[in-house]
Design a protein around this nucleic acid. Structure first.
Length: 436
RNA sequence: GGGCUCGUAGUGUAGCGGCUUAUCACGCCUCCCUGUCACGGAGGAAAUCGCCGGUUCGAAUCCGGUCGGGCCCG
């Protein structure tokens, strides 16, 4: 039902091109998965995603189980059918092929990360460098002190004052799972491996993720080790709970920034799971790349490798060159909605600006050029920077949509071009052109 | 002709003798966003309080004049 084959390996790096066959179509790697947390990639229709060339969409078990409920998605024919996702255009199939009724590949995240990102990570911390300057990267990565308990804020608290006045509800992590409070209505819920996998089986995505515990990068070795032990235990429990054979399950590597924990976790995950992923939060890009360097040598060649939550331009190059196959990230859509739009190196993109420009800047008021000259996306083919600037300054919905179309197109096709460069033996060259 | 009102950043406003180096909102400028609670988060610039003159130790705040807007009575 699933088959992963390596088609081509790069001579100078660990980069590789592969093909994953799933029940709902094949996916070429390296591959970027747009994130559609609530069964929608915000502002984009399934037709938009097809036109962009996306091959798979990632949704979230936590969000969908709270609303509309995994049972609703099951009754509506599963995640792909529910969102009318017909999949990307296969290079081998003709443009005119009818898409009616076809369902494309989907993936769900386990919900483990949300226990962290909506709970443990809620306390605000600003990272500073050795000179006391605020770090531009990861400055929003917020982590609780190990002694604090996790907090979830009910959505019914609308203003900051209300939030402060409301009694904050704690989420508590136990050996077997997590109690947490819904951000939708404040109701109490239990998540563990059996629950997460059961929900993911109901929703029916092709690729699913084992239920994992997420360490804070601020935690010391002992706390991180305890967290990793939970992840390992929950991973095995996830495998035991998993019945459907038409779903491929990723195990998740953890261990924070500790070499021996990461190496152990990578080997452990590779030993038990048919597919491997790397999870975590990272205080810098250096740590992120170091973690991948530790993990990858412990993975077997022929298993799909997913880099959870990662997908900025530089990180895609560094991840692919280290042998990672799949990436997902909210950056293209979130940046797209906030007017932070990707541009190629020849148009001013570089590492320092994350290959983006801020379209709301006043210098674009009368700019008659396309956003990213040379880009073939719908936005760049039809609109000027001046118009995009106006849309964002006016808070018009079309701005968010055109920004998202461009950003997702940019990243999906950047990875597609990287894949081609590996096939043609010029990946290192392309990486140098982009990163210098 | 007489009377009453109002005049504070781009806009709308708070303050009505020392607690204000003048409040708040929007707007403006810039930065940030890595398994999305997110049209979100952070920072910044910008007003000699219509003008002139008094009273006072001290005036955006009180008084007089003046200019401008609005209203009322003849």
């Amino acid at each position: 039902m699933f088959k992963y084959t390596i088609e081509k390996k790069d001579k100078h790096t660990k980069a590789r091109v592969g093909k994953l066959i799933t029940p709902h179509g094949e996916i070429l790697t390296p591959n970027f998965n747009p994130v559609g947390t609530q069964a929608t990639v915000k502002t984009l229709s399934s037709k938009d995603l097809e036109d962009i060339g996306a091959q798979i969409v990632l949704s979230n078990t936590y969000h969908l189980s709270l609303r509309p409920g995994a049972d609703v998605i099951e009754k509506m024919g599963g995640l792909g059918k529910f969102m009318s996702w017909s999949g990307g255009r296969s290079p081998s199939s003709p443009e005119s092929e009818a898409r009616q009724g076809r369902i494309g590949p989907t993936m769900t995240d386990s919900g483990g990360f949300q226990v962290f990102s909506l709970g443990v990570a809620q306390k605000k911390v600003t990272w500073k460098d050795v000179h006391g300057r605020k770090l531009s990267k990861f400055s929003k990565s917020v982590f609780l002190d190990p002694s604090d308990t996790a907090i979830l804020l009910p959505a019914i608290t609308k203003t900051r004052e209300e939030k402060e006045l409301k009694k904050l509800k704690e989420a508590t992590i136990h050996d077997e799972g997590v109690w947490f409070y819904s951000h939708v209505d404040g109701s109490k819920h239990w998540f563990d491996a059996q629950v997460s996998i059961g929900l993911q089986e109901q929703m029916g995505a092709d690729l699913i993720v084992a239920f994992d515990d997420h360490e804070s990068p601020l935690w010391d070795y002992e706390l991180t080790k305890l967290s990793l032990e939970r992840t390992s235990r929950w991973g095995i429990a996830s495998l035991k709970a998993h019945k459907r054979k038409d779903q491929l399950m990723y195990g998740v590597v953890h261990g924070g920034m500790y070499e021996d924990l990461r190496k152990f976790s990578a080997g452990f995950t590779d030993k038990y799971f048919p597919a491997v992923s790397i999870g975590g939060s990272y205080t810098s890009k250096d740590v992120l790349y170091q973690v991948m360097d530790w993990c990858v040598p412990n993975f077997q060649e022929d298993k799909p490798r997913h880099m959870l939550g990662i997908g900025e331009v530089q990180d895609l190059f560094e991840g692919i060159s280290r042998g990672m196959d799949f990436f997902d990230c909210v950056a293209p859509t979130r940046r797209g909605r906030h007017g932070n739009l990707y541009i190629h190196p020849q148009n001013g993109g570089h590492k320092e600006n994350n290959f983006t420009l801020q379209i709301t800047n006043a210098k674009f008021i009368l700019d008659a050029d396309p956003l990213d000259p040379g880009c073939l996306c719908f936005t760049c083919q039809n609109y000027t920077k001046a118009y995009l600037h106006h849309l964002f300054k006016s808070d018009e919905i079309l701005g968010q949509r055109l920004g998202s179309i461009h950003n997702v197109y940019f990243i999906v096709n950047l990875v597609n071009k990287i894949r081609e460069s590996i096939m043609e033996g010029r990946f290192a060259e392309m990486k140098k052109e982009w990163l210098g």
